[in-house]
Simulated scan of single mutants.
Amino acid sequence: MSDLLPVIPRWRRWAFDLVFYGGSVPIVATTPISALIGRSTLIAHATAWTSFHRWAVRRLLGIEIRIEGERPSGPALYAAKHQAMFETLELQRLLDGPAMALKQELAQIPVWGWSARRYGALVVNRDGSAAALRTMMREAKAAKADGRSILIFPEGTRVAPGETPPLKSGFAGLYRLLALPTVPVAVDSGRLLPRRGLRRRGTITIRFGEVIPPGLPREEVEARVHAAMNALER
């Protein structure tokens, strides 16, 4: 299906890489300053960066973004599909600076990792140890206490379009611990922005699924979240 979409011209790809990644250097480099001032300033700093990203995607790559569905007005647990870097930035902006899952390798980057922790990132250790899981749970609980939404990618990693791996066990733990409304998020960014291959023009859809209340049995909530996250798969 994606092969039928027009390839983004080379000059547009070069312009995006030059403008976005070049412009990101001073933004990311000054992140620790915002982190020292306070979390609200750091969230505003991150939102400015993600807004810049959206502008570059639309204006330089010629990719449009369509938002479908509604989301709750208060804090929620968002469980999103992950196909490209695009949604990790776009959902930060759309969800007003949620506490976001972050793989441990990124959290270990000097200075930047410290800033991410100040932002309220939930550090995910892929070895799945009990201690790492307890740490993530503690960070998520602190984010809830601050009145923030939590954003996770419960399949555990970026996947190609059409792939629907099972949810990692940490999702059920967070769902039970936080007792928040849960919103599955489907995306199809991988059709246009694949990890390998040519970037293509078109429209990326972000679809907020039906809100799932807390307190459901594990099997039921996992099945509902998995189905809604993959609603855009073809």
Rank of each mutant, 00 (worst) to 15 (best):
L5D: 03
L5E: 04
R10G: 11
W14C: 01
F16E: 02
V25S: 02
P26W: 14
I27S: 01
A29K: 04
T30V: 10
T31P: 00
A35P: 11
G38C: 09
A44F: 07
T47E: 14
A48P: 00
T50D: 01
T50G: 03
S51M: 07
F52D: 00
H53Q: 11
E70D: 14
E70H: 12
P72S: 05
S73V: 06
P75Y: 05
A80N: 02
K81W: 06
K81A: 03
F86W: 11
F86Q: 01
T88V: 01
T88E: 00
E90W: 14
D96H: 15
P98I: 05
L102D: 01
L106T: 01
Q108K: 15
V111A: 13
G120M: 10
D127Y: 12
T135N: 11
A142F: 13
K144V: 13
I150Q: 02
I152M: 10
I152P: 12
F153C: 09
G162Q: 08
G170E: 03
F171W: 05
A172S: 14
P181W: 08
V183A: 03
D188Y: 13
G190Q: 08
G190L: 04
P194T: 05
R200C: 07
T203D: 07
T203E: 07
I204G: 00
I206A: 00
E210D: 13
E210N: 06
V211S: 01
V221T: 03
A227C: 04
A228T: 05
N230R: 08
